[in-house]
Design a protein around this nucleic acid. Structure first.
Lengths: 110, 110
DNA sequence: TATAATTGGTTACATAAAGTAACTAAAGAA
DNA sequence: TTCTTTAGTTACTTTATGTAACCAATTATA
């Protein structure tokens, strides 16, 4: 009967982080502005999905996109204040993973 | 070229939280042991997926399943220490959501 | 002795999201 | 004119999720 016990804002935040790749993109951008191709390589995401995710993140005000008309063109993605303020969340996930994730639970060993 | 810059433990942790519903289930269980039917109602997840998620969480040592052979049967799901130690993560998500998620970004208003 | 009610699921099928790989646009360099 | 580089997009396949009907165990009820 009780369908709305969970705080809608929390639900919204966790649905953001529940979307595949989004957390990793934000985490990666915490270390500074980066270009499209660098993100694909480091994260291991396809261009198709990275493009889609970055558009969403931009639309939600978490990321900005800046075009530098050099040659070849350079486009950098950077966290906004809203995006950067997820750092404490990422830090806690990092902390937890250091304590509780065993190497055997890691992708590489699978 | 640089395919493994991101810490594998962090990646593992975030892939856990990136799975749809998993974060909400853990968050909900932070308030104590709960039964299957209660979780479906509160979270708004189908039995099919809740069952699947709880099995995964159990397999990963985040949740325990306890059968009470009453009538009708009562089965309770509860966080382990490993599961409960995600509380700081959830707290930070909560904090962030209170500051940065506007009511208009919420599911209800959509 | 059926019949119903309750919990905790499972099954089968439709839809949506993600993975993969080939392709394109723009713009200067050879 | 053709090549290279970046930043994507398109078309197609595979996987994950949503939906609704169904099932097993156990006790209460008619």
């Amino acid at each position: 009967m009780d369908t709305s016990v969970i705080c809608p804002r929390f639900e919204s935040a966790i649905s953001l982080l529940s979307q595949r790749w989004t957390g990793l993109i934000i985490y990666q951008l915490l270390s500074g502005p980066q270009r499209f191709s660098h993100l694909t390589e480091v994260i291991g995401i396809s261009g198709r999905l990275l493009s889609e995710r970055l558009k969403n993140l931009e639309a939600q005000g978490l990321v900005t996109r800046t075009v530098y008309p050099e040659t070849p063109v350079r486009i950098e993605y950077e966290l906004t204040e809203k995006g950067f303020s997820l750092k404490p969340v990422m830090d806690e996930i990092q902390n937890w993973s250091q304590v509780w994730v065993e190497p055997s639970e890691t992708v590489e060993t699978k």
